[in-house]
Design a protein around this nucleic acid. Structure first.
Lengths: 217, 217
DNA sequence: CTGAAAGCGCTAACAC
DNA sequence: GTGTTAGCGCTTTCAG
C-alpha cells in the first residue's frame, strides 16, 4: 500500500526544506541559486520516489484549476464528440484538462451542469447554448467566468463565440442549386428566431434575388 | 468584478465563525445543535451571496477529488462517445466529474495521459487498454489507484474489467449463419493474441463442431 | 451552542 | 544557498 509522495517526503529524504524541493522541481532553481549538487540530489530522489505533483494543492494556491468545462448538447453526438477530441488535444498541450457535461438541449440542465462544473473551479467554459439559456449566459458573464459559445450566439449579447458563417453557407448552397438549374426550392427551418436560422434565410434570399428569382415566404 | 465568495465571507457577513457556516452548509447542524435561527441566517446569506463551495479546497482536505478519468482510444469514436455519455450521467448523479483523455491506441500516449490525470488526483480510472500497455497497467496497480478496464482484459492479471461475452457472441453469430444454411464461412481476426479474439475463435469453433462441421485454420 | 486552530500539499515572500 | 512561514478554502477536533 504505497502512499502518495509529497514534497515533504522528498525534502525529508534529501535532508532539505520543502521550499527548496519546490524550487528545484519547478525549475526555479537557477534564479534562486540552488547548489547544483543539491538540485541533482533532489531530482534523483523525486524520480526514485516516483513523485507526482498534487495539482489540487497547486490549484488551491494558484487559484487556477488548469481545467476547462466543455458543455455540449450531448457528448455522444458525433458532431460534439469530434469537437471534444480536438479540444482535448489542444487543452492537453497547454497543460489543461477538460471536463465535459451534456445539456440535452435543455436550459435547466445546462444551468445545473454549469453550476456543477463551476463548483469544480474550472477556469472557463466552452459551451453550446441551448434554447432559452440566455439568462444563464448573462449570469455567467456577471460571475466573470470566461467562456466561449459554440455553434450559436445571441444578438445583443456581447460574448465570444465561434460559429460557421451561416449566411455564406446558405448563399453558396443556394447558388449551387441555381447553377445546376434548380429554380424551385424551399428552405426548411425552425422558426424560433434563432440567429443562425435568420442568417441562413438571408443567404438564401440574397442568392435568389441576385439571380433574379422570386423569393416568397 | 465580483470575487468568489468563500465561507469566510459568509461568516463575516453573519457574524459567526467559519466553522459554523461549514457545519450548516453541510447539513451537519443537526448533530451539532446549531441554533435554528443562526442556521437560517447562514443559509440566507449564502444564497444571497450566491455561494459556491470550492471543491478544490474540499478535495485537498478530503484527499478525494470526486473525479474519475476516462481513457479511451478516441473520444470521437461513436462507440466510446456513447460510453462516455453513460458514464457522465452516472458520475454526475454521484457527484463525480469525468475527465477524459484519448490514447489513440498507443500505449506510450496512454501512459502519458494516465500520468497527466494522475497528477490531477482523479480518484480512479475507467480505461480501454491498448496493445502493449500491460506494463502500465501493472504500474497502476502498484500505485494503488483504482481502475476498471473496458473492452479488454489481460490473462493472468487480476483486475476489474467489463467486456462483452465474446465467446457467446461469436457462438451465436456462427449458429445464426449455420441456421441460415451457410456452411462455408471464414472468421477474420487480428492474430495478436488478444484475449477477446481468442474467445471469438473459440465460440466459432465450438458452434462449428457442435453442428458437425469441419473447422480448420 | 459557538469558536479557535490545525492541517491537507503546495508556492513564494522574506529572513538568515 | 537554504529555511521559515503564511496562506489558498475547507473540514474537523477540541475547548469553552
Amino acid at each position: 500500500m504505497k502512499k502518495r509522495i509529497s514534497l515533504k517526503d522528498i525534502a525529508d529524504a534529501v535532508g532539505v526544506s520543502v521550499s527548496l524541493v519546490s524550487y528545484v522541481l519547478n525549475n526555479k532553481g537557477k534564479e534562486n541559486r540552488v547548489a547544483e549538487e543539491t538540485a541533482k540530489r533532489i531530482r534523483e530522489v523525486a524520480k526514485e520516489l516516483n513523485y507526482r505533483p498534487n495539482q489540487i494543492a497547486r490549484s488551491l494556491k494558484s487559484q487556477r484549476s488548469q481545467s476547462i468545462g466543455l458543455i455540449v448538447a450531448d457528448i455522444s453526438n458525433p458532431f460534439f464528440a469530434n469537437l471534444a477530441r480536438t479540444i482535448e488535444d489542444e487543452a492537453h498541450t497547454k497543460n489543461y484538462t477538460v471536463i465535459f457535461g451534456s445539456s440535452d438541449e435543455n436550459h435547466v440542465k445546462l444551468k445545473k451542469v454549469l453550476d456543477f462544473l463551476t463548483t469544480r473551479q474550472v477556469d472557463g467554459f466552452i459551451l453550446a447554448p441551448t434554447h432559452g439559456c440566455k439568462e444563464t449566459i448573462i449570469e455567467l458573464q456577471e460571475q466573470n467566468i470566461p467562456f466561449v459559445l459554440i455553434d450559436w450566439y445571441f444578438e445583443g449579447l456581447f460574448t465570444n463565440y465561434v460559429i460557421i458563417d451561416n449566411f455564406q453557407a446558405s448563399l453558396d448552397a443556394t447558388n449551387h442549386l441555381l447553377k445546376r438549374g434548380h429554380q424551385r426550392m424551399v428552405l426548411d427551418f425552425i422558426p424560433v428566431g434563432i440567429i443562425h436560422f435568420k442568417d441562413r434565410v438571408r443567404g438564401y434570399e440574397t442568392a435568389l434575388k441576385k439571380g433574379g428569382y422570386r423569393f416568397g415566404r
